[in-house]
Design a protein around this nucleic acid. Sequence first.
DNA 1: GTGGTCTAGACCACC
DNA 2: GTGGTCTAGACCACA
Lengths: 118, 118, 118, 118
Amino acid sequence: MKFTKNSPIYIQIKDYIIMKILKKKWEPEKRIPSIRDLAVTLEVNPNTVMRAYSELEDDNIIYNKRGIGYFVEENALDKVIEREKEKFFEKQLPKIFKKMELLDINFAQIKKYYEKIE
Amino acid sequence: MKFTKNSPIYIQIKDYIIMKILKKKWEPEKRIPSIRDLAVTLEVNPNTVMRAYSELEDDNIIYNKRGIGYFVEENALDKVIEREKEKFFEKQLPKIFKKMELLDINFAQIKKYYEKIE
Amino acid sequence: MKFTKNSPIYIQIKDYIIMKILKKKWEPEKRIPSIRDLAVTLEVNPNTVMRAYSELEDDNIIYNKRGIGYFVEENALDKVIEREKEKFFEKQLPKIFKKMELLDINFAQIKKYYEKIE
Amino acid sequence: MKFTKNSPIYIQIKDYIIMKILKKKWEPEKRIPSIRDLAVTLEVNPNTVMRAYSELEDDNIIYNKRGIGYFVEENALDKVIEREKEKFFEKQLPKIFKKMELLDINFAQIKKYYEKIE
DNA sequence: GTGGTCTAGACCACC
DNA sequence: GTGGTCTAGACCACA
């Protein structure tokens, strides 16, 4: 996997995991790769994966069974969707609108653009 | 001016300057504040302003007349608008659309949201 | 290392690094000294080394692995040679020839001089 | 006139004047442009031209008649040629040879290049 | 451990 | 006055 240099790798790994859950590749109550394995897969230091896992554990997206591994929380999908939606509407969208105003881009242009790639 | 701690101050200063140009407060071929002056205004170390100026000079947004000061490039406004628009349509918008798809948000919702804050 | 005062130290450090690469002391894909270490070696402030490294990174001569250090780009040697050769033939040599003409120095004299120091 | 940003403007003006003398545009015992005039021609601050003139005066390349203007020294041409030749053989040429060695360029290549542009 | 950012302050060349 | 370079030293995020 290729990481951008704009944001910390552990954040990008968090996003990667959230994506897996959203896309239902990693399902509730199922075990996810061990820190070690994922570190190998992503070509990254295990500490870095560890940090991502820890934060997701704090967020109650995944949980740890000691000696066994990490698992996706039962209601992880809903929680993730809700969280991402909120972030989307509260943070990202307003930023986009502000930029549109600044650059004098109107909604019709966006729509056209949207339909084109649809 | 208040700086967020999410991104480096010198980047925020770059954005500040680009904003000035976009809003036509700082016009092409006109001299912009000296490094020292802006540093005082923004309550920041001159080195930090310098770094912002240097990078904008590399981007051909501003230029330096030795011993005199920095000036806005003649075509800076166009360049800035074009650059920001491209970034918007090529980078930000696709990201938004991808997220919409993932979160199962349709365009109507966005529009409603947009009209509300309008 | 001794620095001349004709040009900025960070430029001289860049040249120092390019020399290392040209002379194959620092090889492609190998890690180069950390900023701090080189700063100690060269008896210079870390910021100054940092500046040299940053510019060489912009030039794609070296790259950074976060938290690990700087590495020589795979094709750095070729790139450096090519770049220096181009500079030599396009910039330096014509300047020399122009000067020769102006000072009425012919090629034979140069050759003699060259053989003497050979 | 266009100035490079590699060296101070006043140095470039000195070179400009030396060129004029070498090319015999400005001849011994003849008056050269006033500081003011040259400043206008070169689109430069008079102080900058002044500095160039002063240094050339120190070098006995030009001299000043108070209230009248600056003049080229009688033996300026010889002096300039000698000085430039020395600089050429002592400074520039060795630098070139060192670079040739480093880049593995041999004399034959230079010669070929030279004959091509001849 | 690594690099990246920032400050405070100095010194210098140049215009 | 202008910018450019450099130092010393601090603090922080990241791997």
